[in-house]
Design a protein around this nucleic acid. Sequence first.
DNA 1: TATAAAAACGTCCAATTTTGTCGCATTGAT
DNA 2: ATCAATGCGACAAAATTGGACGTTTTTATA
Lengths: 330, 330
Amino acid sequence: MESLLRYFDMLCLIPKAPNSISTPEILEKLQNMRYAVDLRTVQRDLVKLSASPLFPIANTENTKPLRWFWIDNSSPMQLPMMSTDEALTFKLAEMFLEPLLPPSVRGRLTGYFDLADKRLKESKFEHWIEKVGVVPNNLPLLPAEIEPSVLAVVYEALLKSLRFKATYQAVNKSPKTYEINPLGLVFRHNSIYLVATIFDYTDVKQLALHRFKDAELSDRVVLVPTDFVLNDYITQGSFSYPVDNHLEEITLKLKVNVFLKQVLLETPLCAKQKISDIDEKHYLLEAIVTNTEQLHWWLRSFGTGIEVLEPLELRQAFALEVKALSKMYC
Amino acid sequence: MESLLRYFDMLCLIPKAPNSISTPEILEKLQNMRYAVDLRTVQRDLVKLSASPLFPIANTENTKPLRWFWIDNSSPMQLPMMSTDEALTFKLAEMFLEPLLPPSVRGRLTGYFDLADKRLKESKFEHWIEKVGVVPNNLPLLPAEIEPSVLAVVYEALLKSLRFKATYQAVNKSPKTYEINPLGLVFRHNSIYLVATIFDYTDVKQLALHRFKDAELSDRVVLVPTDFVLNDYITQGSFSYPVDNHLEEITLKLKVNVFLKQVLLETPLCAKQKISDIDEKHYLLEAIVTNTEQLHWWLRSFGTGIEVLEPLELRQAFALEVKALSKMYC
DNA sequence: TATAAAAACGTCCAATTTTGTCGCATTGAT
DNA sequence: ATCAATGCGACAAAATTGGACGTTTTTATA
């Protein structure tokens, strides 16, 4: 029994394909875990485990301290097994993430999605896919593709707080190589932006990940500008979203049609939202929300389905906009 | 070694907490897998495994064929271990799914999100969360909550093609109990709809999952109406989304401002999209897209930022709408 | 209620597996 | 060239495993 646990811990110590661990390292870690074992035993165990098709591990045959790793692209095995509930939810998540995440990011989860597929298949629930549909409520734009190797370096640099060297091609410019001092990642309409400083300058820049041509990790540590907090940086309007550079709670009063009344009954704007009748076809909606650019987009998107009553400033802003639109379309 | 594999397969046979498997059943399945073992061995092994804190499995102590299951909702263990890349991607997925999936649905993945957290923590990458942000491009509405037990029954009914009995409360009506003949699930603005027929009627209904009070699986098999295909049902406009009840490819010509030009350069409307200059501040965008209600929402949401030039019918529709809006806001 | 079958559990003991040790070959660094 | 580290084969001692059998408890059936 003791040995079973040791096998398990040993398998946990072995990393996935690009990485590896040497036999002596495994021995050391096992001994730290209070396993009194010999190096010879570890060697034998590894050979035994790798012989089984259940554990696709292999070693670098030409190096002398042999290095062990899991042969990749195999979906992970897990205990307890993925339930059909979970499997189905994974497939739903995949459908939702499809238009949101660039393939290279989503690709890091394919092992799990495959596992879910396998699970549903072996349970003879193959026909589930014909029974599920998603009707998106926003226009699916094509996510910009990111060079997978760039993504890997950026991830690692952020996690380990290290700088990296990269070639970046700004719009309509020729590619240039910089040393990037990464501060954070921001996802914004299907694109990923790296918030960073460059070389030893102190001004914070936004760099679209899909415009990097290549990247290579450096060993210099990241220098965070004093008082820099990513969340503050975002809400300060650096991504030009919040209205008037500050977030304000407003009491919204809208006149909405039947369709929107129905939508908002099911998915409210806020927890304390109120809906009352105005006439047969129109309803008064009251809710407290933050006044963001997203709110404005949402309000505009329904056209004549929504009339903004209050706050007055918002109504006036919409009135002005409608005038401008009238001129546009004559 | 043989025994290690048997232990592994045995652990795979044991289901998660609400479900269970009896010792003789395990024996039978193991023998089907060509393990020549004695019942006594299986019993001993199960006791040994459950003694280890690594494998939180337990049995029902009062029944006589003992039934085994994995205890609690602890996060699954997996081999090979989740890489930090995967862990980070899981956390990103969680951020994206937060406003999209109702908690009871998302809840089925918390084990994995927790695992990702654990992984990031033990790798000393605890500060990653301060380094990642999401700027949503649509207004987050509150997803309607669904009774978890209802969701479980609906999932199971759909997977196993069984009917279920449920109490449903339509808007402004008192709850009633029906026998539901489920055909499919559709996700639509953060709500989940069950497409189904009721009793032995043949008309297809849409039932919001969050309006079910309770549900109980029946043993009657689902009867699919002849020619019913969920995807056709959706695209036929049953969810009132596609324009004019049919999907049409149109060549869109838009006059857009700098902001939108930038957005569309990064996340195009379609693969063959063209952008050219009109004047210093405006750009001509040409793309082939399907003419859906979502497209109209998207076009409207930018207000004066977009002027629809072609197709002419669309321009005229927008012109009419602007006139109506003018009247609304005087 | 009686009876039989099934399952759990304790124990013994032989067969098997595991593991430490030693010796030797190979590799890489100093 | 030399030394330390590693891999690997062999062997024997130690530990574990797993079948056999018996007893007790529970469940199903007549």
